[in-house]
Write a protein that binds this DNA or RNA. Sequence first.
DNA 1: CACTTGACCTGTCCGC
DNA 2: TGCGGACAGGTCAAGT
Length: 295
Amino acid sequence: MPELPEVETVKRGLNKLIINKRIISVSDDNYKSFPNDKQLVEQFLIGSSVIKIRRRGKALMIDLNNKYCLVVHLKMTGQLVYVDSNSRWGAGHPNDSFVAKLPDKSTRVEITFNDKSKLFFNDQRKFGWMRLLPTSEVENLPFFQKLGPEPLVDSFTADEFKSRVRRRKNTNIKAAILDQSTLAGVGNIYADESLFGAKIHPQSLVKDISDDSLESLLKEIKSVMNLSIEKGGSTDKNYVNAEGGRGSYLEFAKVFRRENQPCLIDGSPIVKIRVAGRGTHFCPLCQVKAVSKSK
DNA sequence: CACTTGACCTGTCCGC
DNA sequence: TGCGGACAGGTCAAGT
């Protein structure tokens, strides 16, 4: 589920909810979700306080006041949900029926703070993970070593985007932008949406795409992600924000999950195919496949 | 080496 | 209603 905008939304939520709270207990399901040595958790997680939450790509880093950091990757179905000391937001709150049921069968880790409020790490498919380690060692994790630049910072230029994408000359453009070493944070939803905006066919080979088109693609990636952050991300099935609420970006999506519905530009039906092993949505009229020059 | 495919899991939906 | 298979927003390992 969560791509950059969803993880950014969770980050912003947690930064309003758990700063300066002290962790008094942690329970987990002894599953791979949290493969840390129990002694390390006892020694460095319990008793520590949260300083701030950062995001890099689709990963979250919860910085603690003892130079340790709890890194979290939500993968497909992970959730980080905070609930107050009554385990609910109060009658009438739109998220109350969801959070009042926590923990549920997907809960993998439950963190309790000094004021009895809780942070739940839920993950139906168990692909996600948490990892406690010294903050200075976070960047050494293989996941971060390979990660490309953040797309939304000004220092990430069109020239750098082009040269990174063009390293993947023999593959299609969708695979190239889903590759987290090209740039960080693009997943299936925003790949489809940004390719539509840039009028690029998802199966076009990188070597057949013009520089102008790639520049347009970077602009679309930025604008699609910024809009999604504004809308609190995309909730399809599992994703919720740090308070258990839904994101509304999919109401604004132009191709994702809109197969057989009319293209908003020309009215022709949106098509769904499989590209790079993923369900892929596009408009066959707007997004014409780039043609190879050599042949 | 560059690239593609399958595996990791559970839940849901669709066709028979 | 039951059952098998395909599929779901991400990443890695293993294969070609």
